[in-house]
Computed example of a mutant assay.
Amino acid sequence: MRAPQPITVNVFVVSPDTRSERRFELHTSVQQLKTRLELFTGIPVPNQRILLLNNEQDIEPVRVLDDDSRPLGYYSIRDWQVLKIIDTNPSTSFTGQLTDTSQVEKFELTEEEYAKRNDTVLAYKQRNKIGRFAEKDEEPQKPVPEVNIPVGARCEVETTEEGFHKRGTVRFVGSTKFGTGDGIWVGIEYDEPIGKNDGSVNGERYFDCKPKFGVFVRPDRVRVGDFPVEEINFSDEEM
């Protein structure tokens, strides 16, 4: 004995704004279905295009319910298939008016206007010092190394030339506005004109001496001691 044919079908109905499970009688015509669908999808009957899918992830429909006079049974709809309702004219649908933003006048602000407002996320972050507005801990200053080179002491500057002694008197010890990085410079007045300046660099004076008698070197190149004046052959090494 053959099983009786079902007279109803359970399906999922999805539209741009709704999703529900529905039961329909298979003798219901597509036109009657559209009238019922309008009640819970908000899509007017003339705007409805109904696709039959096996599941919601399908891209291609199994059938298109495009004949309003045909009953649902004509399309061989099975339980738990999907009726996907396409709104062909969203601008005239109630729900479409809520989701179609093409008709909505946009409210726009320039960056300057936005920055002046007090009711924005930017203003909130500024008031509460959040993100890039958070107070930053001051970076600890690098300690200045202690240099035990007294001003006025006799000294000798390290050189790579064998037998060549660059001797002079310490005239300055401290930080300067020239050079790369932090640290201490030692200003020396040479005994002979083998230096690079007169105690000034880039218009900033640190001590006084004759032109070509002054030089600035790092402390690790300076030895302090009893270094008498001696005659030397001229050579140009320092900057």
Results as ranks from 00 to 15, higher is better:
Ala3Tyr: 09
Pro4Ser: 12
Gln5Phe: 09
Ile7Thr: 15
Ile7Asp: 14
Ile7Tyr: 11
Ile7Gln: 14
Phe12Glu: 12
Ser15Ile: 05
Asp17Met: 14
Thr18Trp: 03
Arg19His: 07
Ser20His: 06
Glu21Pro: 00
Arg23Met: 14
Arg23Gln: 14
Lys34Gln: 13
Lys34Ala: 07
Thr35Arg: 12
Thr35Ser: 10
Glu38Ala: 11
Leu39Tyr: 05
Phe40Asp: 06
Phe40Thr: 04
Thr41Tyr: 02
Ile43Glu: 00
Pro44Arg: 07
Val45Gly: 00
Arg49Pro: 00
Ile50His: 00
Ile50Gly: 02
Leu51Tyr: 14
Asn54Ile: 04
Asn54Cys: 12
Asn55His: 10
Ile59Asn: 15
Val64Tyr: 15
Asp68Ile: 05
Asp68Phe: 03
Ser69Arg: 13
Arg70Trp: 10
Leu72Asn: 01
Tyr74Ile: 04
Ser76Tyr: 12
Ile77Glu: 01
Ile77Arg: 01
Ile85Asn: 00
Ile86Gly: 00
Thr88Arg: 11
Ser91Met: 04
Thr92Lys: 08
Thr92Cys: 03
Gly96Met: 02
Gln97Arg: 08
Gln97Asp: 08
Thr99Cys: 02
Ser102Ile: 10
Gln103Ala: 13
Gln103His: 12
Val104Lys: 12
Val104Ser: 12
Leu109Ser: 08
Thr110Asp: 11
Asn118Phe: 08
Val121Ser: 05
Leu122Cys: 01
Leu122Phe: 03
Leu122Ser: 01
Tyr124Pro: 05
Lys125Ile: 01
Arg127His: 09
Arg127Ala: 08
Lys129Leu: 10
Gly131Val: 04
Gly131Asp: 03
Phe133Tyr: 11
Phe133Glu: 06
Lys136Ile: 15
Glu138Asp: 10
Gln141Ala: 09
Pro143Val: 07
Pro143Asn: 13
Pro145His: 04
Val147Gly: 01
Asn148Cys: 03
Asn148Gln: 11
Val151Thr: 14
Val151Gln: 09
Gly152Ile: 06
Cys155Thr: 05
Glu156Gln: 14
Val157Leu: 12
Thr159Trp: 06
Glu161Gln: 13
Glu162Trp: 09
Lys166Pro: 08
Lys166Leu: 15
Gly168Asn: 04
Thr169Ala: 01
Val170His: 00
Val170Arg: 01
Val170Gln: 03
Phe172Glu: 11
Val173Leu: 06
Lys177Gln: 13
Phe178Glu: 10
Phe178Tyr: 06
Thr180Asn: 10
Gly181Pro: 01
Gly183Arg: 08
Trp185His: 05
Gly187Lys: 07
Gly187Ala: 04
Gly187Trp: 03
Asp191Leu: 02
Asp191Lys: 04
Lys196Phe: 03
Ser200Gly: 09
Ser200Lys: 09
Asn202Tyr: 13
Gly203Trp: 13
Gly203His: 10
Arg205Ile: 07
Tyr206Lys: 03
Phe207Arg: 08
Phe207Trp: 09
Lys210Trp: 02
Lys210Tyr: 03
Gly214His: 08
Phe216Tyr: 00
Val217His: 00
Val217Phe: 00
Pro219Tyr: 01
Pro219Met: 02
Asp220Lys: 11
Asp220His: 11
Arg221Ile: 02
Val222Thr: 01
Arg223Val: 05
Phe227Ala: 06
Val229Pro: 08
Ile232Leu: 13
Ile232Val: 13
Asn233Asp: 15
Ser235Leu: 08
